[in-house]
Amino acid sequence: MTPAFPPLPDLILEPLVRAALDEDLGTYGDITTRTVIPAGTRYKARIRAREAGIVSGMQLAAIAFRLIDPALVLRVHCPDGAPFGPGDTLAEIEGEAASILSAERVALNFAGRLCGIATLTAAFVAETRGTRTRITCTRKTTPGLRLVEKQAVLHGGGFNHRFSLSDAILIKDNHIAAAGGIAPVLAAVKARASHMMRVEIEVDRLEQLAEVLDQGGADVVLLDNMDTPTLRKAVAMVSGRLVLEASGNMRLDRIAEVAATGVDYISVGALTHSVRTLDLGLDF
């Protein structure tokens, strides 16, 4: 089956998986497996879903098995971005039983968490159907796992916000306070920012939005913690002149009404900071 999404280079992902394997193997490796599994024992194992969801993390699972034993053969049945149901086989691994067992937990930890992110993202995206609004993630990610967690958001049909502080200028409320207000902070952007850099500014009141429109210098406005009627007024005020992103208190049961206001993006930190790991298992 052709993957729905092009994979990232293994070279980028290997350090993440290697660190997880180092943590799990400890100072002396898998002593249980070495003690009870005779050398040369071969098995075929399956990664199976115990609940429905959206696939993500198969590439990292494959790297985990390969780093433990390059001779293992892994066949992915459900590529990243594909839906699956309870009992479905996501991948098969064949080879030395000891190698499969030693890589099992790290492979499932990555796949379960990333499937959880993709699945939750897909649920949020479903609430925007019939609108132009896109669901995007935030930088509220697990330290060290931002790249793969944001990739899982893509697998669920969402979009990515900044990967790092160096990707774009995002002026938050504390920046505004420290700089002395909206006018001076936007003046500083106009004077110092590269013409290649996108600029987003956060506002939480319509009076601030009016000042941003008057000052100029921003490409995107983040509408923070506004209720739905206020978001609707903000969309009318901007009238397509700037990209609008709604943020703050974006629960799943609220997404449809927020999308209906006409905002371009809804950013949801919960996609990565409050996700539930999906229940996957490895069966011999």
Rank of each mutant, 00 (worst) to 15 (best):
I266T: 01
G181T: 02
L223P: 02
D167E: 11
A188W: 07
D253L: 03
C137D: 15
T32R: 06
G181C: 04
I47C: 11
L222G: 01
T33Q: 12
M197Y: 09
I176W: 05
T33S: 13
Y265H: 07
V235L: 09
R50S: 02
M197W: 06
M196D: 06
P83D: 10
P6N: 04
K44M: 12
T272Y: 08
G216F: 01
D224A: 02
I100A: 15
D30Y: 04
I201G: 03
V153C: 13
V73Y: 13
T228G: 04
A82S: 14
G85Y: 09
V275K: 06
V275S: 15
L90A: 08
R232A: 09
V203K: 01
V258L: 01
T121E: 04
G112S: 11
F163C: 10
D10I: 00
L145F: 15
A236C: 01
E94F: 07
L244I: 02
I176D: 06
A187F: 00
V106M: 06
S166C: 08
L67A: 14
A188Q: 10
A52C: 06
L213Y: 06
S239V: 00
I93C: 11
P3R: 06
V185C: 11
R276P: 01
P70D: 00
Q151T: 14
I176P: 12
V199I: 13
A111K: 10
A4G: 13
R46V: 08
L186D: 05
N225H: 04
N174F: 03
S267Q: 01
D227E: 12
G281S: 12
V263I: 07
R241D: 01
V199Y: 07
I266K: 02
V268Y: 03
V263W: 01
A218K: 06
A188G: 10
I135F: 10
R134I: 12
D264V: 02
G95W: 00
T133V: 09
L13R: 08
T138R: 07
S194Q: 04
I63D: 12
V106P: 14
P6F: 01
H161C: 08
R146P: 11
R42W: 04
T128N: 09
F124Y: 13
R139S: 05
M197K: 07
P143W: 05
G116W: 11
D22L: 13
G262K: 07
T136A: 15
S247T: 07
E200L: 02
P184R: 02
E211K: 11
V199N: 02
P15H: 06
Q208H: 10
G53D: 08
R50N: 06
V263G: 02
K172S: 04
M1T: 07
M197L: 12
A97Y: 01
L16S: 14
F65R: 00
G53H: 03
S239N: 14
A193E: 07
T33K: 03
Y28R: 13
T277D: 15
A177W: 03
L244V: 00
D227M: 10
P86S: 09
A187G: 14
R232C: 06
V268F: 05
T277I: 15
F5Q: 09
V263P: 05
V203N: 01
M1Q: 10
A19H: 15
L145K: 12
V220D: 00
G57N: 12
R205T: 15
G157Q: 04
L271E: 05
V148K: 08
D167A: 11
L108V: 03
G158L: 15
G85D: 09
R132K: 07
V220F: 06
